[in-house]
Simulated assay, not measured.
Amino acid sequence: MSDSLAPYLPYLLALVLPPGVFIVLLLVGLRQWRPRRALGIALVLLACAGLWLGSTTGWAWVTQSFVLRVPPALGPIDLDELKTQAKAQAKGNPTVAIVVLGGGLVPRSPDYRLSDLSATGLQRLRYGLWLARQTGLPLAYSGGIPYGLPESVTPEARVAERIAREEHGTALRWVEDGSRDTRENAGRTAALLRQAGVRKIVLVTHVWHMPRAQRAFTEALGGSGLTIQPAPMGLLPLQTSHLAHWSPSLPGLIENRHAWREWLALVLGY
């Protein structure tokens, strides 16, 4: 993505993601109601169904599971294996590392009066720190200045470094602060960790972002021999039969927007 297109991206996404895409479809259906009544009715009904389903956590779970095909969360066996690997590398240079991908930056928080991570970024950092405590593995954070923000803004990874140190008493082993999107996250972080002798990455990001993040890291790593173990977070519970999961809600709308956005990015090869 170029900096010239960045200011327009929120408006474009508003038209192609829920609920915007269904509102547009509804307006088209109403416009066709009189000249093409059958088509108009079909479009209106489709828009209404989309508005309803696109705001439910049940449909978001279906999209994540069968469209994005997200990997499962780390289980107790996975954590035990990572602990064993951490102990094996305790006396030498680390060959396994946790990598947290940035999730957004607040240039200046009105609460703290300094740069802060977005809610998404904070969730990823917190999970990465928890994994580091559970396994003993070193931690990296990848995230620079997002598109559209001035170069004077503090890079996201530097904000994460401060929060980890001041609020959690943990130091990040690696800080990659030059990337602006997922592809750059992968390319810059892979180069940084290869130089450090790391052979395995435990990749932390939200579940809906994981398929695209895995693809980017796989492409960046090429034939280097460095492997990836996905550690997705924010998975939805498997309770699609419960009525509440098929009722519109704000969490449902947010999860569907994320899932649709990631699917669109995968299709477009972004």
Rank of each mutant, 00 (worst) to 15 (best):
Y127F: 15
G128P: 13
L129E: 09
L129Y: 09
L129G: 11
L131G: 05
A132K: 07
A132G: 13
T135K: 02
T135H: 04
G136A: 04
G136E: 06
L137R: 13
L137C: 11
P138N: 09
P138W: 08
P138D: 06
S142H: 06
S142P: 09
G143C: 09
G143K: 07
P146C: 13
Y147W: 13
Y147P: 06
L149M: 13
L149H: 03
P150F: 00
P150E: 03
P150I: 03
S152Y: 12
S152V: 15
T154K: 14
P155R: 00
P155G: 02
P155N: 01
E156N: 07
E156F: 05
A157G: 04
R158D: 15
R158W: 13
R158F: 09
V159S: 03
A160N: 04
A160Y: 06
E161P: 01
E161T: 02
I163M: 01
A164F: 07
E166S: 10
E167I: 09
T170K: 12
T170D: 00
A171V: 08
L172M: 01
V175G: 06
V175S: 08
E176I: 12
D177G: 12
G178T: 14
S179M: 09
S179A: 15
R180V: 07
T182Y: 02
R183V: 09
R183D: 10
E184F: 01
N185V: 02
T189D: 02
A190D: 00
A191K: 14
A191S: 10
L192T: 11
L192V: 12
L193F: 13
R194L: 14
R194G: 14
Q195K: 15
Q195S: 14
A196D: 14
A196W: 08
A196N: 08
G197P: 10
V198Y: 13
R199N: 07
K200C: 04
K200L: 00
K200N: 06
I201A: 11
I201D: 10
V202N: 14
L203H: 01
V204Y: 02
V204T: 04
T205D: 02
H206M: 05
W208L: 09
H209M: 00
P211A: 08
P211N: 10
R212N: 02
A213K: 00
A213Q: 03
T218W: 00
T218E: 14
A220M: 03
L221I: 05
L221C: 10
L221D: 08
G222M: 12
G222V: 08
G222N: 12
S224A: 12
S224T: 10
T227S: 15
I228Y: 10
I228K: 08
I228E: 08
Q229R: 15
P230E: 08
P230L: 10
A231E: 06
A231N: 11
